[in-house]
Nucleic acid binder design. Structure first.
Lengths: 206, 206
DNA sequence: GACATGCCGTACACCCCTGTATGGAATGAC
DNA sequence: GTCATTCCATACAGGGGTGTACGGCATGTC
């Protein structure tokens, strides 16, 4: 019985990035417990021997994957908005990008659901602090005082999280949450227009 | 070596309700995977023999626990609001109760995170439909037309879910999300006053 | 062409969880 | 007191996941 190794084509080597993104996909589906080396190896058409070459542990994969999430969905996103000068356009672009290019559906709810996990807690804390601080600065730039900007940032971020959660749990029941095109308009209506009317007009000359 | 059975006091028998609530607590901490018969037996100071007397399967426990969640946090909650005639007071009481008496912290995010699980999907679908339908009716009673009421219901429910998620993930970073006293005021400001200003005044005579 | 090294497949031991079978303690009926 | 029933503890087999040891196939170097 001959074992066939690479029948299809030149099998390219797996990178730690491949394992990390596969781990994030698995986490979005079934939580932290779904990130099993066995399942990921099957999905990547490899074996666990490949995994333990790139990573020391399963915990090392978890932290690496969550750092990828932190880098892509928070650090890089904020950095991409740096060149937009108008704060209103920056706010609009922020939620448009965050809601529009959601790469892995259900990842954020899965991460938040395991907030107590030792591999999740520090990254989630950094991400939440960074995002709320950025939103607070943005609302301050829009003319709100410190307390009001903070409140708006918390409310907007909660609405954002709930929007993602609703998209994950009931994209068939609530179809308006699924279409990428309407997300921009609906989200901007609810997050910008409606979450800031009480203090917006005295800051807006128009 | 004598085995001591009931040293402390008359050990009352465990009910399926005990197992269900313990399952919900475990699910809130570590997701569906944390609902293990072993762990729950240790928490309840019993053995798996007791469990398999009350339940056929682990899946039977999951569905029973989720039905308890559906009954307590949706059916009973809506039923408790039936005697409030004023829709504005009913809306205020709804979010006050839903946000105030959150019995198990982090349960809703955990359930939503496993929306694809076969034991979760049907219950979550029923709960989401029921809640959004109730909110839609409530906003309709408040004077909104069908489309607007539906949009407000979806937005308010998303904000509610995100508020719970933020409370779970960052109650230390965002302290305003934890205090039960301020929840009522903040939630009512953001959910009633701010989510319905565009169409509220023409329905409100005052 | 010998040799080192990067990358991966395989096999083994170990642990945790599930489900079932079986026995035993406690309680009430009579 | 006997007996049946309820409820629970214990023991066992089976499966799946982890981590490690080891062996093998490549590719590049000299």
């Amino acid at each position: 019985m001959t074992i066939q190794y690479c029948t299809d084509m030149a099998r390219r080597h797996l990178t730690p990035q491949d394992w990390s993104t596969a781990a994030l996909r698995a986490m979005a589906r079934g939580g932290v417990a779904a990130v099993s080396v066995n399942a990921l190896a099957g999905e990547l058409e490899a074996t666990r021997g490949s995994f333990y070459w790139h990573f020391k542990d399963r915990d090392a994969l978890l932290t690496a994957a969550l750092e990828v999430w932190e880098r892509d969905d928070t650090t890089a996103l904020i950095a991409a908005l740096g060149d937009i000068t108008d704060p209103r356009q920056r706010l609009a672009a922020l939620f448009t990008i965050a809601l529009g290019q959601e790469d892995i559906n259900g990842l954020e709810p899965a991460i938040v659901a395991h907030a107590d996990h030792p591999a999740v807690a520090p990254v989630l804390r950094r991400v939440t602090e960074r995002r709320i601080a950025y939103l607070t600065d943005l609302y301050t730039e829009l003319g709100l005082d410190t307390a009001a900007a903070r409140r708006q940032a918390v409310a907007a971020y909660a609405a954002f999280l709930g929007w993602l959660e609703l998209r994950r749990s009931a994209c068939d029941i609530v179809p308006e949450v699924a279409a990428t095109g309407t997300i921009a308009t609906v989200a901007l209506e609810h997050l910008i227009a409606e979450l800031t009317p009480c203090a917006m007009h005295q800051a807006e000359p128009e």
